[in-house]
C-alpha cells in the first residue's frame, strides 16, 4: 500500500504542464498509486485522449497510445479484444468522452468491453480555451456561451454516470471529486474498484472525476477547488453501479 509522501513508482519525474490548481495532477498521482499497488505496470496500456491530458505519456510510465479525439474507447476496444490479458484504461475529458466520443463510449460500455474509462469532468473544453461542453452547468458562462448556457439553446447538463449505470454490461460506475482530502481518498478507492472490475473480467468500468479548471472558470485555484462543490449539486457523487465481487 502506498503511504503519504510517496512519489509513485510509475509516475515520471517530469513536472506537470497543467494550470496551477488543476486537479488533473491529483488524478494522475492516484492512478499511478493504484497501478503500483495492483502491480499493473507490466501489462498496462493507457489511452491518452485529445485535450489537456493528451500528454499523459509525459507523466505515466506505461505503454500509452494516443487516440484520436473521442475515439479512446474504440481504440481501447481494439486493444483489449486482441490482448485480453493486458490492462487497458482510457483517460479522457468530458468533451472527448461525452461529446464527440459519446457514441464510442456508450457502445463500448454497452458491449461490456473489459476496459476502464476515466472521465475528468471540468464542464468545459479546457485545452482549447474553455468552450461549452455537454457537462457545462446551466447558465455557466463559457467562451462559446458568453451569456451563460441556455437550456433552450444548449440543452441540459449530460449526466454520464447515471446513464452508464443503467447498462447491463457495466460492472462498476461511479463519480467522485478530488477537491477535499476525503474525496481524494474516495476517488482512489473508486479507481481501485474500477481496475479490479476489469481484472476480474466483470465488464466495463467507469469513473467520472469532477475537476476544477481555474483558468477557464476565471477563478483562482482555491476558489475553483471549492466551486467543484457546486458541480456536485448537479453531478452527485457516489457509486452508481457495482456488481458484487465474483464468488
Amino acid at each position: 500500500m502506498s503511504k503519504p509522501f510517496d512519489f509513485p513508482k510509475c509516475l515520471k519525474r517530469n513536472t506537470f504542464h497543467y494550470c496551477p490548481g488543476c486537479h488533473h495532477g491529483i488524478v494522475h498521482r492516484l492512478i499511478c498509486e493504484v497501478i503500483d499497488e495492483l502491480n499493473l505496470k507490466d501489462k498496462t496500456i493507457g489511452l491518452a485522449s485529445i485535450g489537456c491530458s493528451c500528454f499523459l505519456y509525459f507523466y505515466i510510465d506505461v505503454d500509452i497510445l494516443e487516440a484520436p479525439h473521442g475515439r479512446a474507447c474504440s481504440v481501447a476496444t481494439g486493444i483489449k479484444r486482441m490482448r485480453p490479458d493486458l490492462f487497458v484504461f482510457t483517460y479522457q475529458g468530458d468533451g472527448d468522452f461525452s461529446a464527440i466520443g459519446l457514441g464510442d463510449s456508450i457502445h463500448a460500455a454497452s458491449r461490456g468491453e473489459k476496459i476502464t474509462a476515466i472521465m475528468i469532468n471540468n464542464t468545459v473544453y479546457g485545452m482549447t480555451g474553455g468552450q461549452v461542453s455537454p457537462t457545462t452547468l446551466l447558465y455557466q458562462k463559457t467562451t462559446t456561451t458568453p451569456l451563460g448556457r441556455d437550456p433552450q439553446r444548449e440543452g441540459y447538463p449530460l449526466k454520464v454516470a447515471e446513464i452508464l449505470a443503467t447498462f447491463e454490461a457495466v460492472a462498476f460506475c461511479a463519480r467522485s471529486a478530488v477537491n477535499n482530502p476525503k474525496r481524494v481518498k474516495e476517488t482512489k478507492n473508486y479507481l481501485k474498484k474500477a481496475f479490479k472490475a476489469q481484472l476480474e473480467n466483470k465488464g466495463f468500468s467507469y469513473v467520472e472525476i469532477l475537476s476544477s479548471c481555474p483558468v477557464n472558470w476565471r477563478m483562482d485555484a482555491v476558489s475553483a477547488n471549492y466551486h467543484v462543490d457546486k458541480l456536485t449539486e448537479v453531478y452527485p457523487l457516489g457509486i452508481f453501479k457495482e456488481l458484487p465481487p465474483k464468488k
Partner: peptide, 13 residues
C-alpha cells in the same frame, strides 16, 4: 499528509 493528498503537483515528498 493532507498537503500531499491535495497537491496537484506532487510537491511534498
Amino acid at each position: 499528509g493532507i498537503c500531499y493528498l491535495m497537491c496537484p503537483e506532487v510537491v511534498f515528498v
